[in-house]
Design a protein around this nucleic acid. Structure first.
Lengths: 193, 193
DNA sequence: GGATATCTTGAATGAACATTCAAAAAAGAG
DNA sequence: CTCTTTTTTGAATGTTCATTCAAGATATCC
């Protein structure tokens, strides 16, 4: 037996960035070779093919973002402040205009979920997990007395996720930072009402 | 002089469908040749290149959708019913799962706005026009007494558009029709509050 | 210290790609 | 009808694509 010489996480993060810069279809194996410093044979040996590399990168991405998400909420004493901080972080990603700060999952949902059942399954699952986490957040906010209306935590989580997807798309067409943060503020408001 | 033998609108609608099925990058000139029944030379003669064909298709798409949008509102006696009917039509597009019922503008925003300034300009402009129309709608709803809160028509239009973008993305990850229509109902509610 | 198994290397492969072009066709002007 | 201008045709172009593979390198096991 012999173990791979490269650092898998490091390679996957490099691939993530490449995919985020150009999207899946526009990113060539040449780009991925350059980004990862791996020879074609090594990539195929480790990930089977280009799609396999995307799926592995998607998994790593979700793992990284989930950790980040939990950190943001852990850093706040109240769940509602956590939600606010989370939305702020998304706003600053949107405003930055940096492609590598976009959401790889969302990009993949838009570019390939419709075309590939395996990717669709992975992405659908990631979305569900994200929603489940947000459900818990709203449960916590409710216990803290931070909610006004009668909606279930699940409905709120759904609306929040829809709003975040929409915000990320909208910010690519309308780049005014004030508008983006105003929309995010309104979203926070709507979702707690 | 000699005029082109093909029907420009018909060709652009065929190209639209091709782009919606596979996305811009995955759609090859072969696909476009097949879809439009035009030879490569004719496409290049009329639209300069693949990107030119996309931009022309995008313009046609926006024209078609704008007409459709106005029809939906014209068919209702009150603006609020128009908005409801509009959201219903979007929900049924999302539920259908038919790629050719997706929004080409939104697909293009996600796939190429970041990479191409010309496309970004066109798409940003289309988004602004859409928002302006929705502003008028909310003005009308307000005059009809259908609004509750204090937000401006512009803010409401922004939130609506963000919600629609989000709904379209979300529906590619979560396909339950009941969930999709519930979210749309909530969106209508939030945006009139 | 072999033997074995696996990874690495990087050139080679053939397919698919966007685009070009020269020749043919045809529409409109006079 | 003829000339001019434009479109149409479809094969050809050269590039880039994802993938393969055989040879070489190296870790691990016994």
């Amino acid at each position: 037996m012999r173990s791979a010489a490269f650092d898998r996480e490091q390679v996957l993060r490099a691939a993530m960035n490449a995919f985020m810069e150009k999207g899946y279809n526009k990113t060539s194996m040449q780009d991925l070779k350059r980004a990862t410093n791996l020879h074609p044979g090594s990539i195929y040996c480790a990930f089977e093919n280009k799609k396999g590399l995307l799926l592995a990168a998607l998994e790593q991405y979700n793992q990284d973002r989930t950790a980040e998400l939990k950190d943001i909420f852990a850093a706040q004493s109240r769940a509602k402040s956590g939600l606010q901080a989370y939305l702020d972080s998304i706003v600053s990603e949107c405003i930055s205009g940096d492609p590598t700060q976009a959401c790889l999952s969302q990009k993949a949902i838009n570019e390939i979920a419709q075309q590939d059942d395996e990717a669709q399954g992975v992405l659908s699952n990631q979305c569900t997990l994200w929603q489940r986490f947000m459900c818990e957040v709203f449960g916590q906010i409710e216990r803290e007395g931070g909610l006004i209306g009668e909606r279930s935590a699940e409905q709120r989580a759904q609306s929040l996720i829809v709003g975040i997807y929409g915000l990320r798309t909208y910010s690519q067409a309308q780049k005014d930072p004030k508008v983006i943060s105003a929309i995010a503020r309104q979203l926070l408001n709507d979702v707690c009402k």
